[in-house]
Write a protein that binds this DNA or RNA. Structure first.
Length: 474
RNA sequence: GGCCCUAUCGUCUAACGGUUAGGACAUCGCCUUUUCAAGGCGGUAAUCAGAGUUCGAUUCUCUGUAGGGUCACCA
C-alpha cells in the first residue's frame, strides 16, 4: 500500500462548527473513501486563549451526525496518536531544533508592542507588513521565553500546482519570518500543521481558499526541512445567502447542530454541501453518502464562491424525506411523532403531514398554527363559510344531508378513503358543481380554509365522528 | 495600498473553440384539485465590458471593471 491516499480534517476547538468547516471535512472524507484511503481527524488546539470548552465533543458530534467516520483521531486512536496538537509539543520542539541547528530559526528580540509599531507603520504607508525587514543581524540563543521565528531562507516567488485551481503563485511579499513557536511554548498553525501533515503521512491537503496566500510560507518551510510537498486541493469559499461575504461565524454562519435541531436530515446536509462547490458533471442532484463517495472527484470542484441557499437545502431535504418514507418508514414515523401530542400520534396522519413539510420542525409549525387540531377536536367555524360561491344555505344543507344518508350505508369497517371518496363523488357529480358538496363537507370536517382533502380527513376521523360533524353542519 | 483568487439565468451550476447556451432551486402560468400542499406540463430569465488570436469564441490572451481572500505570538 505505497500510495494510499491520506486526508485529514484539522479543526481548532474555538467554538461551534459551521457549514463551511463541515464541507471541508466532507470533501476530505469523500476523497479518502473514494480512494480506499485513510481519513484522519486532528484537533489543532494550539491557541489556548481562544479555545472554547466543549468544542471538541461538539466537533465529534457534528461529524457523527452526518456520518463522517474518521479512521484515526480522538476516541479511536491510531498509529500517529495523540491527535491533539497540545499533546504533541515535543514533536514540534524537535523540528524547531532542526531549524535552529540549520540557522533557519531564531528568537524574536522585539516585544509585541514593538512589532505592533512596525505593523502600524507599514499599514499607514499602505504597504504590506513584513517582519523580515526588521530581522536582527545576530541571532540570540533561544531560551523558550521569546517567540521562535522562521528565517525565510530565500526571498523568491513561488509557483505551485493546485489540484483544483491549477497553477497558483505568490510573490515575495507572501514570504516572511513567521512565528514557529509562540512565547507560551505552543506552536503556531503555520508550523504545527506542516509537521503533523508530514508525520501523519498526509497525501492531500484540502482547505479553504483563504489559505492560498499563506502557501508560499508553507512551501518555504517544507523546503527548509528538505521535505517534498503534499498535494494541495484548495476549496472555493462559501458565501452568505444574499450577500457576497464569505460565510463565517461573524456573518451569521450557523452552528451545524442548529440544522439538526430544525429537523434537517444528515444526508440532506451532506448532499447540499457536496453540491456547493462541486457537481458530478451530469444532471443528478440527489445522492446518498455512498453514491457521493463513488462519484466525487477533485477535478470537478469549482473555482468560484457559492452562495448558501436555504431554499435549495429545503428542497433537497424534502427529497430525502421522500426517500426515507420509502426506505425507512419507521424512522419517518418516529421523527414526525416526536413533535406530535399523544392524541395526534395517528399512523394515517403521516402521509398527510409528510407531503406538507420540508423539515421536521415544520410539523411544529403546523401544530402551532392549529392546522392539525381538527383531527382530535370538534372544529369551530362560522356557518357563512360553509357556503360555496353563491349557493343558498338550504341547498348546501340538503346536499350534506344527502351525503350523510349515503355515507351511513357504509359499514364501519369499510369506512376507508376509497369508499368515502366513491360515495361523496357520486353525490357531488349529481350537482351543478362538485364544490357545492365537497367544499362544505371539507369545511365542516376541518373548520379550515386550507386543509387536506375531505376523504382523507373523514377516514382518519372515522364514521361516527364524520357523521357527527356533518350533522352539526346541517 | 501590495499580493493572490474569481467572474454563465435572481441562486447552485453544465457546456474542457462550432449547442436553438442544458439542468436544478426560486419565480410566473396552465392542468389536476372544493381549498391548500403534493404532482404533471410549460414560460420568463445568463455568458461583466473592451480589445486581440481564430474561418469561428462562454471557452484561449491582454486590459479594464466588479466581487472575494490575505498581509496576527488566529487557525
Amino acid at each position: 500500500m505505497e500510495n494510499k491516499v491520506v486526508t485529514r480534517f484539522a479543526p481548532s476547538p474555538t467554538g461551534f462548527m459551521h457549514v463551511g468547516n463541515l464541507r471541508t471535512a466532507l470533501y476530505a472524507y469523500l476523497w479518502a473513501k473514494k480512494n480506499n484511503g485513510i481519513f484522519i481527524l486532528r484537533i489543532e488546539d494550539t491557541d489556548k486563549e481562544r479555545e472554547v470548552q466543549g468544542s471538541i465533543s461538539h466537533i465529534l458530534k457534528v461529524l457523527e451526525w452526518v456520518g463522517i467516520n474518521w479512521d484515526e483521531g480522538p476516541n479511536v486512536g491510531g498509529p500517529h496518536a495523540p491527535y491533539l496538537q497540545s499533546e504533541r509539543l515535543d514533536l514540534y520542539k524537535k523540528y524547531a531544533q532542526i531549524l535552529i541547528d540549520k540557522g533557519l530559526a531564531y528568537p524574536d528580540p522585539y516585544t509585541e508592542e514593538e512589532v505592533g509599531i512596525f505593523r502600524d507603520t507599514a499599514e499607514l504607508a499602505k504597504k504590506p507588513f513584513l517582519y523580515r525587514e526588521h530581522r536582527p543581524e545576530v541571532f540570540e540563543k533561544w531560551d523558550g521565553t521569546k517567540p521562535l521565528r522562521f528565517k525565510t531562507p530565500l526571498i523568491k516567488s513561488y509557483k505551485w500546482n493546485d489540484l483544483v485551481y491549477g497553477e497558483l503563485s505568490g510573490g515575495p511579499e507572501a514570504l516572511d519570518d513567521f512565528i514557529l513557536i509562540k512565547s507560551d511554548g505552543y506552536p503556531t498553525y503555520n508550523f504545527a500543521h506542516i509537521i503533523d501533515d508530514i508525520e501523519m503521512g498526509i497525501t492531500h491537503v484540502m482547505r479553504g481558499q483563504e489559505f492560498i496566500s499563506s502557501v508560499p510560507k508553507f512551501l518555504s518551510l517544507y523546503d527548509a526541512l528538505g521535505i517534498s510537498y503534499p498535494l494541495f486541493a484548495t476549496l472555493p469559499p462559501i458565501m452568505g445567502e444574499g450577500g457576497n461575504k464569505k460565510l463565517g461565524k461573524r456573518d451569521g454562519a450557523k452552528d451545524v447542530l442548529e440544522y439538526k435541531n430544525e429537523g434537517y436530515l444528515p444526508f440532506a446536509m451532506v448532499n447540499f454541501l457536496a453540491l456547493l462547490g462541486w457537481n458530478p458533471g451530469d444532471e443528478r442532484e440527489i445522492f446518498s453518502m455512498d453514491e457521493l463517495i463513488k462519484i466525487f472527484d477533485i477535478s470537478r470542484i469549482g473555482h468560484s464562491g457559492a452562495q448558501w441557499n436555504d431554499d435549495k437545502l429545503d428542497w433537497i431535504n424534502k427529497e430525502h424525506i421522500k426517500i426515507l418514507a420509502l426506505k425507512n418508514p419507521e424512522e419517518l414515523k418516529n421523527n414526525i411523532f416526536a413533535y406530535l401530542p399523544d392524541e395526534l400520534k395517528i399512523e394515517k396522519l403521516i402521509p398527510v403531514i409528510t407531503e406538507r413539510i420540508s423539515k421536521w420542525s415544520d410539523v411544529k409549525v403546523m401544530l402551532e398554527k392549529g392546522e392539525l387540531d381538527f383531527f382530535y377536536k370538534m372544529p369551530k367555524y362560522s356557518k357563512e363559510k360553509l357556503i360555496y360561491k353563491n349557493i343558498k344555505l338550504e341547498k348546501i344543507s340538503k346536499n350534506i344531508s344527502q351525503a350523510v344518508s349515503e355515507l351511513e350505508k357504509i359499514n364501519e369497517k369499510d369506512f376507508i378513503l376509497e369508499n368515502i371518496k366513491k360515495v361523496l363523488m357520486q353525490v357531488a357529480n349529481t350537482l351543478e358543481s362538485r364544490g357545492e358538496l365537497l367544499h362544505p363537507v371539507r369545511y365542516a370536517l376541518s373548520g379550515l380554509d386550507k386543509s387536506p382533502d375531505p376523504f382523507v380527513i373523514a377516514e382518519i376521523l372515522g364514521k361516527n365522528e364524520t357523521l357527527l360533524r356533518l350533522q352539526k353542519a346541517i
